[in-house]
Amino acid sequence: MIQVENLVFQYPGNDGPTLKGLDFSIAKGEIFGFLGPSGAGKSTAQKVLYKILEGYKGQVNIDGKNLSEWNNSYFERIGVGFELPNHYLKLTGKENLELFAAFYPNGKKHNSAELFEMVDLQDAMDKPVETYSKGMKMRLNFIRAIQHDPDILFFDEPTTGLDPVNAHKIKQHILDLKNQGKTIFVTTHSMETADGICDRVSFIVDGKLVLTDTPRNLKSSYGKEAVTVDLKGGKTEEFPLKDLGVNPQFLDFIKQGEVKRIHTLEATLEEVFIRVTGKSLDHE
């Protein structure tokens, strides 16, 4: 669906390129994530892909066709969820949504009332956006991006500014979109978001992709293939995952008292990121 080869981009007036030769591909129906700290080039890469930034070097193909050869019809196929809320504050939520809906052909558009209901904004749809909280504006961003039923979706930090409940709902909606066959490119510095929704993630640091794999592989290959068993009373022991079910020490140990907790020792994505890149995800 999306193939990117040796993508280089430099902002006019900057000393060096922001993107330094990115190679990646995203298959149809996949959720692919860029995980990296602020300023790593995540949003810049997305902006090239949704044609806001021109003058890049390298090859970008969408459905086998060079990005530069796509005309305005490309924008009918994509939806963009921006990092920050961007709406007309004097218009109502519904007016904002309907304004941008008017630019798309009628056939595939979702019903706006259903979209508002989907993100629990039905009571606010006729209120001016200037009365919305940041989280409400972000949910409006989300439904604006999907209202024309695009095949490809770009979400830039989709859970930023959302409370945990709404962040969870948005992640669930993104997974639903994947199940409908949508191709989704997410950028985030939230390990939890990347881990929760992405089929594959790439670590991006200083404009370069350092590593690409599934969150599961990354966590297991950088973690320890073992479990820790905690018993009530404070006893704790570690056992290798291999042949755990027939390991006599393990079986003996869990009979010694009430098991409080058993947990694997796989690394978190954040730990993997720090070990691979030497940088923290909060790095500015």
Binding site: I78, V80, F82, N86, F103, Y104
Partner: peptide
């Protein structure tokens, strides 16, 4: 920015 990503020339 939104006008940059809609099918409006």
């Amino acid at each position: 920015k939104v006008y940059g990503v809609v099918p409006l020339s």
